[in-house]
Design a protein around this nucleic acid. Structure first.
Lengths: 239, 239
DNA sequence: AAACTGATGTGATCCAGATCACGCAGCGGT
DNA sequence: ACCGCTGCGTGATCTGGATCACATCAGTTT
């Protein structure tokens, strides 16, 4: 099968989505995958590009191939919270399309990357054509819901910024942690962005970094964050 | 068609769910409705009964017929937040069942009421049998997601308790507001419960009531809450 | 009626973070 | 080198709610 740099087959792309076998577009039946491949279009976006903006009428979904995407929502007075950092394999805008409502978040490329776009109508047709995929979509949606619920628990039940910060570090380190409980993560976010994730101010995040370093919970080598011990962090979370 | 007090046909029940035509169990095709009627079982629950508890393996969904249900989640250290007050017509536990995960909330009857139970396996079978219903389920799930997202916005973007309180009052008054912007709502929650909704303390809620009454934003006649002007409240929210 | 219980009002105190206000470091552009 | 810009570190204040500690009140029970 031929591959062109800007027109990858979704089936092929699937290979590039590590450990995402449960994903919407993976493990489709051959005819479904072929159909999907026909209705999608691929594009490359620069850093800072907006895939869609909160409040816009939903045009379709984006399947992220490469790069990271920042999902955020803001209030009229300028305050912003980041609800998720999406990674390759994620399907963006699904809720808005399925429920035919405006996008509930803004999706911004954090680094240059590639995404497949599937227009609203094509997707809905596709789902009616392949009911088993509709079922997978429902499961994806309920998984999204769980993530949102975790967010609610964090925002509503966790009071102190230090606790939320510890939670965030833990969520980062789960991906590739060592046997001894330590982990290394590439830090790609600014303090400002971290503040928008845990709902506090830039200054407080800065102080949290100092505190946690002093308490030997973590350490910074260039842009690499070294987490000393997960158990110590879990103690802080304690909720 | 015969009606028995404790074994209402779901189709009939639909009539008792006001303005819920978009609901999962309403507007089904005749065969789907009949099938649904076969797999459901109805029960009456006393006040305080737990339909399900956070963390339990999902057994099935509940379709609320009468009464109100409090959905909440708590942290290990005892703090609780109420995420939603469910009303007749709502489908409870859908996300957990579809994603085959534990219930993410606790559902407690706030007053005696009736609910239909549909076991997990029966529901999944049913959805495979009627793909058009699976599609409706997906839409219901994405609507749930929107509600959760609203919650995130409230918790994450709204800082002051007074703003959240105003938001809550507005959400109550939307249901039946007068032309002049006033509205009357039966107050069924304690200050403690309101505190758990907006994420503050009982004392603060008590003070908020005093403040808002003093500022002529609302007024209390027995258990009836009279909202003076919606616009004034919207000014406070302002986000 | 008295005692009990759960829901409520309200003052006094305290403190974690927000806010303000800088200084400083890195880095790309001209 | 210079500038401009964005991100970061840190002190000094200020303050809104949490917390504690009672008093009160309405509805129930005995």
């Amino acid at each position: 099968m031929m591959r062109t740099p800007y027109g990858l087959n979704i089936l092929d792309n699937c290979v590039t989505c590590p450990q995402r076998t449960e994903n919407l577009i993976c493990n489709l039946s051959i005819p479904a995958a072929q159909r999907l491949n026909e209705i999608k279009s691929t594009a490359v976006y620069p850093k800072g590009a907006m895939l869609f903006i909160e409040g816009q009428q939903a045009r379709g979904v984006f399947v992220l191939c490469t790069g990271k995407v920042k999902l955020s929502t803001s209030s009229r007075d300028g305050k912003t919270i980041i609800t998720k950092i999406s990674e390759p394999g994620d399907v963006l805008g699904l809720n808005a399309v399925i429920s035919t409502r405006p996008y509930e978040v803004t999706a911004e490329m954090m680094e240059p990357g590639q995404a497949n776009f599937i227009p609203r109508d094509s997707l809905m047709h596709f789902l009616r054509e392949f009911p088993e995929v509709a079922m997978k979509v429902a499961q994806q949606l309920s998984r999204n819901y769980y993530t949102a619920y975790e967010e609610i628990r964090t925002l509503g039940l966790t009071v102190s910024p230090s606790e939320k910060f510890a939670k965030l570090l833990l969520s980062w380190s789960t991906k590739d942690s060592q046997a001894d409980g330590s982990a290394q993560v590439k830090l790609t976010l600014t303090h400002e962005e971290i503040a928008e994730i845990i709902g506090t101010t830039r200054e407080t995040v800065s102080r949290l970094f100092s505190d946690f370093k002093r308490k030997q919970l973590m350490q910074l080598k260039g842009a690499t964050l070294v987490i000393r011990s997960r158990v110590a962090l879990e103690k802080i979370v304690q909720s």
